[in-house]
C-alpha cells in the first residue's frame, strides 16, 4: 500500500494505463425511454356492487418473444387497493419500488389512515404526468382498483401521458378493443354496477382473459386475478385459463395445410 489514497482500490496506472473515467458518464447525454422494451399486455377490470375485480396475465414479452412467463403484473398496495400494470416492465418495477417507499412512509406516519384507491390514483396520475412533462415518460398504462373514501368501488386509469379517467369497466391495450365490448355488455353504465354480483364480475373478467388469449398474440394462459372488497384483497397470481374452446379454429379456412 502506498500513501496516495486516491490510488487505493484502483487499477495501477503503470500496469493498466491511466484510469478511464468515461464510464461514469458524467458528460454523456441522459437517455430517456423512447420506447418500451419488455412489455406486459392488457389489464382488464370491472366494478361490481361491493368491490372491483381486476386481472392481467403473467407474461412479459420482448418484442414478439415471450420472454418471461412468470411476471406478476397486479400489485397489492394495501388492504383496499390493487394496481394493474400494462406496458414496460422495468418502469413497472420502478413504480413498484416507488409504491413500496410510499407505503412505508405512510405506515411510519402516526395516522392510521391508509391511502385508499382514490388517493393512490391521484398520486400515480401526478407521477405519470410529471414524467411525461419532463419528456421522460414511464411507459405504462395503469389501472387502479379498490375502494374510495366512502368504501364505494373505485376504478380508474392513468397512462404514460398522465391522462386519467374512470369507468365501471376498464381495459388497457388490446383489452380496449377486445375486452371492453364484452365488459360493457354487462356493465353499460354506473347504475348497473349495483346490479352486478361478485360472481358475475369475476366470470366476465375471466371470459375476457380467454378472448384475449385467443386473439392477442402477446398474451398467455396463466394470469393473476384480484378481487378487492371492504374486507380486504383476495389476490390469486397463478390462475390458469379454463374451458378453452378452440372449436372455432376448425372453421377457419385458408391457412396452413388445409386444401379445401
Amino acid at each position: 500500500m502506498n500513501h496516495f489514497p486516491q490510488a487505493w482500490g484502483r487499477p495501477r496506472d503503470d500496469v493498466y494505463g491511466s484510469y478511464d473515467h468515461s464510464h461514469f458518464q458524467t458528460n454523456g447525454p441522459n437517455q430517456h425511454t423512447q420506447s418500451p422494451i419488455v412489455t406486459g399486455t392488457s389489464v382488464v377490470a370491472a366494478k361490481f356492487k361491493d368491490g372491483v375485480v381486476i386481472a392481467a396475465d403473467n407474461l412479459a414479452s420482448y418484442g414478439s418473444l415471450a420472454r418471461f412467463t412468470d411476471v406478476k403484473r397486479l400489485r397489492k398496495f394495501n388492504d383496499q387497493v390493487v394496481v394493474g400494470f400494462g406496458g414496460d416492465v422495468s418502469d413497472m418495477q420502478y413504480l413498484d419500488r416507488l409504491l413500496l417507499s410510499l407505503d412505508i412512509r405512510e405506515n411510519y406516519s402516526s395516522t392510521e389512515n391508509p391511502l385508499n384507491a382514490k388517493n393512490l390514483h391521484t398520486y400515480l396520475a401526478k407521477v405519470m404526468y410529471k414524467r411525461r412533462s419532463d419528456f421522460n415518460p414511464l411507459w405504462n398504462h395503469l389501472l387502479i382498483a379498490g375502494l374510495d373514501g366512502e368504501d364505494k368501488p373505485f376504478l380508474a386509469s392513468a397512462d404514460l401521458l398522465g391522462t386519467t379517467f374512470s369507468s365501471p369497466t376498464l381495459a388497457t391495450g388490446f383489452g380496449g378493443h377486445l375486452a371492453q365490448p364484452i365488459l360493457r355488455k354487462l356493465l353499460p353504465d354506473e347504475a348497473s354496477v349495483e346490479r352486478v354480483s361478485e360472481e358475475q364480475a369475476v366470470e366476465v373478467v375471466k371470459e375476457c382473459m380467454k378472448v384475449l388469449f385467443y386473439r392477442d398474440a402477446r398474451s398467455m394462459d396463466k394470469y393473476s386475478i384480484a378481487v378487492i372488497k371492504k374486507d380486504g384483497v383476495e389476490l390469486k397470481e397463478d390462475e390458469k385459463l379454463e374451458n378453452q374452446s378452440w372449436a372455432f379454429a376448425e372453421r377457419i379456412r385458408g391457412y396452413g395445410t388445409q386444401t379445401a
Binding site: S109, S110, T111, N113, L115, K118, N119, H121, T122, Y123, K126
Partner: peptide, 15 residues
C-alpha cells in the same frame, strides 16, 4: 389535496 386528493390529517400538519 392536489397530490393525494386527501384532506391533510391534523396530526400530520401539526407535526
Amino acid at each position: 389535496r392536489l397530490t393525494y386528493d386527501r384532506a391533510i390529517p391534523l396530526s400530520e400538519i401539526t407535526l
